[in-house]
Design a protein around this nucleic acid. Sequence first.
DNA 1: ACGATAAGATACATGACTGTAGCTAACTTG
DNA 2: CAAGTTAGCTACAGTCATGTATCTTATCGT
Lengths: 198, 198
Amino acid sequence: MAEGPTRRRGKALLDAIYTAAVDEAAASGPGRLTMDAIAKRAATPRSTLYRRWSDPLDLLLDALADRHPVEQPAPGADDLRGDLVAALRLMVEWGFSPAGRAVMAILGDPARDPRVVEALWERVFDRRGGTFTQTVLRHYASRGALDPARLTPVVLDIGEAMVTKRMLDTGAAPDDDYLAAIVDQAILPAVGLGPAPA
Amino acid sequence: MAEGPTRRRGKALLDAIYTAAVDEAAASGPGRLTMDAIAKRAATPRSTLYRRWSDPLDLLLDALADRHPVEQPAPGADDLRGDLVAALRLMVEWGFSPAGRAVMAILGDPARDPRVVEALWERVFDRRGGTFTQTVLRHYASRGALDPARLTPVVLDIGEAMVTKRMLDTGAAPDDDYLAAIVDQAILPAVGLGPAPA
DNA sequence: ACGATAAGATACATGACTGTAGCTAACTTG
DNA sequence: CAAGTTAGCTACAGTCATGTATCTTATCGT
């Protein structure tokens, strides 16, 4: 019987550990995240974990950073509305991945350590060039399709905020109709392309 | 020495327990909430807690329900903008109370039990007539100051969503400037009272 | 092929929380 | 004032996670 290697090392092992950590965090919440559970899920002895990380959260941050490269919205030709909906769809997808759930729980934790959040931004988010709708809005602004002066931090965050709140409230992924409503009723008016003022 | 009663009962005791539960949840997060910690904080034996509740979350829900009546926004005469900012200020205040932190953590918990969330809405939120900016917007719509047709679920939730996201991101309370920016740049355009479209 | 490295398999004392139980004594109600 | 209720106290066995410390042996680099 041609058996493969029986003992994992390096990248393969790391990968199993990271997967276990993120899944475990998504299942139990980072608050209840434990070295023991990660080790069991990854089928590795705890000692292996302790060799590299001092506590579960530290491990989780590495895992999230490793997992992070998220698909970027690719703004198309001339469909601002469609591209915005697509960007939000990407966000929903990410938000419901184990990584997204874990991040949400970290941010929502009232006992959150500011250093952890800071590390989260540094190690995970900052590598990406801006958030989902931001990329799209900036793209169209640079093409002159909308007024760059309107793209304040508040406006750039409307889509993400609405989706976040919706996911928090319902626990479910907003469908395309709801995403379209966000675009039509909140984002477009804010960038000056909505229905005319009364 | 005229000593009061040395043993708490009924409402006084309940009150101490509820306070302990909410504070404990705000401090450690509901994920790490334990009967033991609540009991210690309330200086009561665990047996007293087990007599009434079967687990910490059940207890916490009762505590939140008991604590809930939140101050309602009181829309004034003719200052939609000011009233909206005031409503958001109320929301921020609530969000940073122990109860608000606990609720946030419950909603953000990836392992959240749908029944718990349902119970949270039933026992805590539904008693109130709508959320913060909702009350204000409906008030002005009924006076004809803005178009009721614009008050879709999405639009009614913009303010709350922006504040929620901001608190999640920064962990701090948005100041009045930021609240005003939300009103000016997101809510007012969405109800048709913002800057004119380009 | 050899030697360094590190995964894998234990084992252990410690501490936290659980759920239950039994007792005493303070309060409330009739 | 007597009887019923229930806070307060203590103790217990059971479970789970923690760190640490072995010892082995598979795998990698040279």
